[in-house]
Design a protein around this nucleic acid. Structure first.
Length: 479
RNA sequence: GGUCUCGUAGUAUAACGGUUAGUACAUCGGGUUUUCAUCCCGACAACGCGGGUUCGACUCCCGCCGAGAUCACCA
């Protein structure tokens, strides 16, 4: 049988990294089995609905390179994919339940329900609405909530991640199916939709594990066969033991994108947070994830979100793309991350800058802070030169004469390229009888006035003869 | 409080009855002609506790402890 999975978010704001994993796993499973991935928007809560949230969700999924076979934008045989547009469908199923004597309209005012709940809390007994069912409930009509009529019994089921599950009759209750505003609750809507859409694998966070017996009861009453149930453990906040949420600074995926995290990194990191294939592989492409994913290797305890590792992974991916796809391919991903000053320079020049600094990047936005001196002359900061730990032992006139020798030597260099520059620098070391740490620090700082920069010969090569000599000259004059 | 779940280094994880408990991130130290990184080498560091079962237990069973989830006309 074809595998059908779904991601069913609520449009209540951006989806943060704690949620996207619930989209990744169903996607991987669907692609691995050549099945169907559905995106369904669960917008039955009108109060929490946020304008534009659906688009944000779609953009997020597209950015990490996940697509869907049915859902908003692409449509499909089970449209509409917005729950708010499926009201009649839920009502039709609800009537089936009423006809079977498994649902009833509840006229009890909320205040009375609250008092029941309070009573139970005081007596320290569990609050079960089935013990307070109204006698002779009225016909179900608009304005009245509809409740499921639970039959207390034990349930056994298998959760693909958590294993064999068992609960007693005490957890079954008369949950609300349709709210008084006519919209279904999540508890009812997702069951109807999953059945209508032929969903075979229901993946969601563990917070739904406790409610599962109630869902099982509804499947039974509706004569729907159970899909496979998969509970995904939570992603934990960096500190504490709470599930990662917006309050812990759980950033939206778009924020990571703005920070210069690659989508490949995001997908790779999140997929491997709480799942591994048993090998020691750390870097996975989307294709490799699809190939190797398996439900039974999903972890069953929560995993802590670790941004340091995310950054490390991002560095790995930056290098991987550079090495496997080339400088231009990496460059194409960096367009919005260059400093302002880079605008006045050619694309070829920026690519060559990227080629010598890419292995220093943890995020693409690092470009802004570490490449500026390639695009405009740095401000001369003599203190930085004089106080450098390798240069402090020299007098200013010694520094000046070293610079002058360097300038004259470089001026006479025939071929300005990395290799001959390196030879030239080596000769300079011999001639001046200085250590690399001394001479090279002097040249490096004079060229960049940055705390760090790439290998000296490469920096000179990219900067070019004219600019390099001009900078060295102006430093020599300033001393 | 009821019900359910989880528990290997700081973090993410491997191991599925027999290993000096492996790997990665982080940390610390060292190496690669300057710096910052990359890369390489090395070090530190873990089976929550207590009982069983077994020749043998991180692995199986029980109890405890600790952590989490849930008990909405939110999803």
């Amino acid at each position: 049988m074809e595998v059908v999975t779904r991601f069913a978010p609520s449009p209540t704001g951006y989806i943060h990294i704690g949620n996207v994993r619930s989209a990744i796993y169903p996607y991987l499973l669907a692609r691995q089995t050549k099945g169907t991935m559905i995106l369904r928007i669960e917008d039955t809560d009108r109060e929490r609905f946020v304008e534009g949230a659906t688009e944000l969700i779609e953009d997020t999924l597209k950015w990490i390179n996940l697509d869907w076979d049915e859902g908003p934008i692409v449509g499909g045989p089970h449209a509409p994919y917005f729950q708010s547009e499926r009201k009649e469908i839920y009502h039709a199923w609800a009537r089936k339940l009423i006809a079977a004597g498994r649902a009833y309209a509840d006229p009890t005012p909320p205040e009375i329900i609250d008092s029941y709940r309070k009573e139970c809390n005081e007596k320290k007994v569990p609050f079960l609405y089935r013990n307070f069912r109204p006698e002779n409930p009225p016909e179900w009509e608009p304005g009245l909530p509809l409740r499921f009529k639970a039959e207390p019994k034990s349930y056994d089921w298998v959760d693909e991640v958590m294993g064999e599950m068992h609960t007693g009759p005490e957890v079954l209750d008369d949950i609300i199916l349709i709210k008084k505003d006519g919209f279904p609750t999540y508890n009812f809507a997702h069951i109807v939709d999953d059945a209508e859409m032929g969903v075979t694998h229901v993946m969601r966070g563990v917070e739904y594990l406790s409610s599962t017996p109630n869902y099982l009861a509804i499947y039974e009453a509706l004569k729907i066969s159970r899909p496979k149930l998969i509970s995904l453990p939570h992603i934990l906040a960096p500190s504490g033991n709470k599930k990662l949420g917006k309050r812990d600074g759980a950033k939206s995926v778009t924020e990571y994108r703005a920070d210069g995290i690659l989508p490949e990194t995001m997908l790779n990191y999140l997929a491997c947070l709480g799942w591994n294939d048993g090998t020691e592989q750390e870097i996975y492409t989307k294709e490799e994830l699809i190939e190797n994913f398996s439900l039974d290797r999903i972890q069953n305890s929560g995993a802590r979100y670790d941004e340091t590792k995310l950054l490390w992974l991002n560095g790995q991916w930056i290098r991987k793309i550079f090495i496997e796809q080339g400088a231009k391919a990496l460059y194409d991903r960096t367009l919005e991350f260059w400093p302002e000053s880079a605008k006045n320079h050619s694309e070829d020049y920026r690519v060559s800058v990227l080629s010598i600094i890419y292995d220093r990047l943890k995020t693409l936005s690092d470009l802004k802070i570490i490449t500026n001196y390639f695009f405009e002359d740095p401000t001369i900061d003599l203190d930085m030169l004089i106080n450098n730990k390798f240069l402090k032992k020299f007098s200013e006139s010694e520094l000046e004469s070293l610079l002058k020798i360097t300038i004259s030597k470089l001026s006479n260099l025939k071929n300005w390229n990395a290799e001959s520059l390196q030879n030239c620098l080596n000769n300079l070391l011999d001639e001046t009888n200085k250590k690399p740490a001394e001479l090279f620090s002097l040249i490096r700082i004079s060229l960049s006035f940055a705390p760090f920069s790439p290998a000296l010969n490469l920096t000179l090569d990219v900067l070019g003869r004219e600019i390099s000599l001009a900078r060295l000259n102006s430093v020599a004059r300033s001393i």
